[in-house]
Design a protein around this nucleic acid. Sequence first.
DNA 1: TGGATTGATAAATCTTTCTTATGAAAAATC
DNA 2: GATTTTTCATAAGAAAGATTTATCAATCCA
Lengths: 302, 302
Amino acid sequence: MKNLSLKQLRYFEVLARTGHFGQAAEICAVTQPALSVQIKALEASAGAALFERTTREVRLTGFGVEFAERVREILRSVDELSDLARKAQEGLSGRLRLGVIPTIAPYLLPRFLTRLNGAFPDLDVQVRESITPRLIAELGEGGLDLALVALPVSERSLEEYPVFEEPMVLVRPEAEADAPVPDVTTLHMRRLLLLEEGHCFRDQALAFCNIPGGGPRDGLEGTSLSTLVQMVGAGMGITLIPEMAVPVETRSAPVSVARFRGPQPMRQVGMVWRKTSPLAERFRAIADLLAPDTSEPSVDAQ
Amino acid sequence: MKNLSLKQLRYFEVLARTGHFGQAAEICAVTQPALSVQIKALEASAGAALFERTTREVRLTGFGVEFAERVREILRSVDELSDLARKAQEGLSGRLRLGVIPTIAPYLLPRFLTRLNGAFPDLDVQVRESITPRLIAELGEGGLDLALVALPVSERSLEEYPVFEEPMVLVRPEAEADAPVPDVTTLHMRRLLLLEEGHCFRDQALAFCNIPGGGPRDGLEGTSLSTLVQMVGAGMGITLIPEMAVPVETRSAPVSVARFRGPQPMRQVGMVWRKTSPLAERFRAIADLLAPDTSEPSVDAQ
DNA sequence: TGGATTGATAAATCTTTCTTATGAAAAATC
DNA sequence: GATTTTTCATAAGAAAGATTTATCAATCCA
């Protein structure tokens, strides 16, 4: 059964259907001898006759009948493979493993996934939420295709694709709502609540406030932005959160939100993927779906 | 997706498994460029990249993963096809549609089918019982592969394969058991009970007794040998039956069985199949399984 | 029996696939 | 940081395989 070819199976299937070498050859767009030779080769490699030939008619042998059933099944599978390929050419399809950092996921994913599903209905999106270093590692190992993070990640093997910039805003207890917005450089004077180590948002905030990073800050850490805001509401201090988190997180806590005056602390939101990925173009199209809604309510500077 | 070949799918599967062009090429017993070219051709016809290449590693894309699953399924089916072929080469396999005439079926089939199943366990035997003309027609139309009949059938397109000869024996009421066995030529003087028209055994009996065939013989016909013997037991006349029917049919009726003296009326039992059938050799092997048991009890001439 | 139909076979041509030789990029090593 | 190694891609000639044209042999039909 060596040197079996799909072409032979195709010829065989048509001949089994038509029962006529001439007609089958025409359907296959080859000459009759070409088909005869291939059928003969197929029978040789199968080790048994598939057809019983008369000048009058060409009929499947008992073995041929059984053979034909399986061949049809194989050809069907192969055609499905072609369908799959054709589909993949136009719309994106298949599995997409997407990593997202925790300070983006809850606020951007709902809208993003809706859009993604609208644009690529055949895409099977699998989301994993983790901190940037883990996502980068998984990208490198091939466990992820794409990650939605804050840029830059500065990883040589990864391509960075910025999508939009976003300000960090100040969250204070509601009682301080009318107090003047402090300068960012003075924040280290206050009890500044931040996320635990590993979150890039923590590092960005520290950098912005000119506070050296490193060790833990006992009593000043929360496991999520939501927790931080609740802590602020309880009067434990102040914090920074990304603007996109404002509508969701500040709704149920007695806090006041304000933009800083002067130079805004910003973070760059974007996507990263392996430079070698052949799907880079598709990934850019996907990333563009992240572009913020212009109708989105934003926090005014006070 | 044109010009897709099984070879490409095989190469692809190995490369997907090894993740290394060099190793994959070695497994496929070709050089690395050959494999590279085929993979590239496969990707071109699929219209999308299947692998993500680094000097470090070769990894399936998301699309490639989906593609690989289906390819593996296809290759599995193809291998099964090979198994089927290999099996068919040695033992006979597949479906065998066998026709048998009613004056043979009940007596020979039990033992024959047992032997057949022993010799070719993978053979799916489908038996149809009918009179010779119908069997011949079905053979011609491809509805049957093989028929077990009385020879000759004298059909140009069929090959006849005699297996054994068998005498016809006389069945009389038990009361006549001690009477001398009449000469066959005198049988037309008696009420000779025979099968209905169409049965070859009827014609053979008539020919042997020098009685012209043709029209129906009211009141002298039975639908089966079993019926005929019961009729004889009821004193309605005498009949002829093939020797193989004796043990089964004469057990429960008050009849006496006797061989004729002098030249025995005989029938030739054998098989027929289309001369064009590529399975002729197999059919001969099958027919040989019909050879009578030498330990078989036979009816002594009186 | 002679023409028509149908499948098999043979030789030449064309296409595809393979091998050998070589190049280029990234990683590992010194 | 230059060099060696590893690994995949590419190119050209060689080998293998498939296709076409031409022809034959067998069967059917009139």
